[in-house]
Computed example of a mutant assay.
Amino acid sequence: MEDFFKEEAVLVDSFDRRLRRIEDDGASILVMLQNRNSAPQSRELAYGLREVTEITGLSRSTLDKLFKEGKLHASKSGRRTLILRAELERYLQDMAE
């Protein structure tokens, strides 16, 4: 029985380390996004999906999952899917907290 608890403790520690890495990555992405948008002339109001994947490093399938889960909201302009800058910043800020 003691071995079971040791194995569980190892799994919890591993999960905790991974969670901390994800939180650190989210904070880094937020800083990167804020630095990228610091120049007033380069502050777009919205980004296309390709731009969001380049800015954040998130894959297209991850973005689709976030849309489906309601964690990130997109808008349509004709056939183009756009993510408002404020929405992307909100999501990244929530992820960093």
Rank of each mutant, 00 (worst) to 15 (best):
L72A: 00
A96W: 02
R80F: 06
L45H: 06
L92D: 02
R36M: 13
I55N: 06
L11Y: 06
L30S: 00
D13S: 11
E8R: 13
R80Y: 09
F5S: 10
R85N: 15
K71D: 05
R18Y: 03
E23G: 07
A46E: 07
R90E: 11
G78Q: 04
S28P: 00
F4E: 08
A74D: 07
V12K: 14
R36C: 12
G48H: 00
M32L: 14
T53V: 13
Y91D: 01
A96Y: 03
Q41N: 11
V31T: 09
L19H: 08
E2Y: 08
M95R: 15
T53N: 09
S14F: 06
I83N: 01
L84G: 11
E87H: 09
R17A: 13
R79M: 13
L49E: 12
F5P: 00
E2H: 09
T53F: 09
L11R: 15
M32E: 08
T81L: 10
G57N: 05
Q34P: 01
L49D: 02
L49N: 02
R85K: 14
R50I: 08
N35P: 05
P40R: 06
A27T: 05
F4R: 10
I29C: 07
E97M: 11
E54Q: 15
E97I: 10
L84W: 09
R18W: 07
N35H: 11
T81H: 03
R50E: 15
F67T: 02
E8H: 08
T62R: 13
R43P: 01
I83V: 13
R20I: 07
S14M: 10
A39F: 10
R43G: 03
F5E: 08
Q41V: 10
R50P: 04
K6H: 08
K65F: 07
E8Y: 06
G57Y: 09
